[in-house]
Computed example of a mutant assay.
Amino acid sequence: MMRAPSVFLVGPMGAGKSTIGRLLSAELKLDFYDSDKVIEERCGANIPWIFDMEGEAGFREREEQVIDELTGMGGIVLATGGGVIMREANRRHLSARGTVVYLCTSVEQQLARTAKDKNRPLLQTANPEAVLRELFSKRDPLYREVADIIIETDQRNPRWVVHELKRLIKG
């Protein structure tokens, strides 16, 4: 039996991966997974705690295992963490096992959407804007490298984005 193709959402924090992923999975009638939530459930701890205890490298190890497992499932919509594309193995699994959608957003939009979120360890700094700009410069080329579809989410209603993605995926 052919497994339904999967859709993997990549992009920076605050791009709308979780929100759009939930809506898209309902539209496509596929199961939804959020890799960060899966990691938290397995650890019994939130991501800031994992970063504190194991550092970013420890978190990325856990993330790589979860990405390998989830991308192997077939027939899912997966929202990934913003840094998922920093590991070559993750990029390889995402590219080979489904349709990769880059939800592209501006640093301004990211700041607006993440301002009050304490669950983002990389932004717990005096200058989150500088951090976001630096992350964007490193990660944007990698998001583009793995993406089958690139869609801007700034100033766009999540339902519009989902409708557009559905059209592009089916197309």
Score class of each variant (00 low, 15 high):
Ile50Tyr: 04
Val101Ala: 01
Leu28Arg: 13
Asn46Thr: 07
Val77Met: 08
Asn127Cys: 11
Arg144Ala: 08
Arg3Cys: 13
Leu103Tyr: 00
Glu63Asp: 07
Ala89Gln: 06
Leu123Asp: 01
Ser106Gln: 03
Arg159Cys: 11
Asp148Leu: 04
Asp140Pro: 03
Met86Glu: 14
Leu30Tyr: 14
Glu129Ile: 00
Pro141Arg: 02
Ser18Ile: 01
Asp68Ile: 14
Ile85His: 06
Gly16His: 05
Glu88Asn: 12
Gln65Phe: 08
Glu56Asn: 02
Tyr143Lys: 05
Ser25Lys: 08
Leu165Arg: 04
Gly16Ala: 10
Val131Glu: 06
Gly16Asn: 02
Ala115Arg: 15
Trp49Arg: 14
Met1Cys: 07
Val7Gln: 04
Pro48His: 02
Pro158Trp: 10
Ala26Glu: 15
Gly14Trp: 00
Glu61Asp: 12
Ile67Asn: 05
Val131Ala: 03
Glu129Gln: 13
Ala45Ile: 14
Phe8His: 12
Met1Ile: 10
His163Gly: 15
Glu40Gly: 04
Glu69Arg: 00
Pro48Asp: 03
Arg22Trp: 10
Phe8Met: 14
Ile20Met: 05
Asn90Gln: 09
Val131Tyr: 07
Ile20Cys: 06
Arg133Tyr: 06
Pro121His: 15
Arg167Phe: 14
Leu30Gln: 12
Gly44Gln: 09
Arg60Ala: 07
Leu142Thr: 00
Ala112Ser: 11
Lys118Cys: 11
Tyr102Asn: 04
Ala112Lys: 13
Glu27Val: 03
Ala26Ser: 15
Ile149Pro: 06
Ser25Ile: 02
Gln124Leu: 13
Ala112Met: 13
Glu61Gln: 13
Ala130Asn: 09
Phe32Gln: 01
Asp31Asn: 14
Arg60Val: 02
Glu41Ala: 15
Trp160Gln: 13
Asn90Ser: 08
Lys166Thr: 11
Leu9Met: 03
Glu61Trp: 10
Val66Thr: 06
Asp117Cys: 04
Asp36Met: 06
Gly82Asp: 11
Thr125Gly: 02
Ser137Pro: 06
Thr153Trp: 00
His93Lys: 12
Asp148Gly: 09
Val162Glu: 01
Glu129Asp: 00
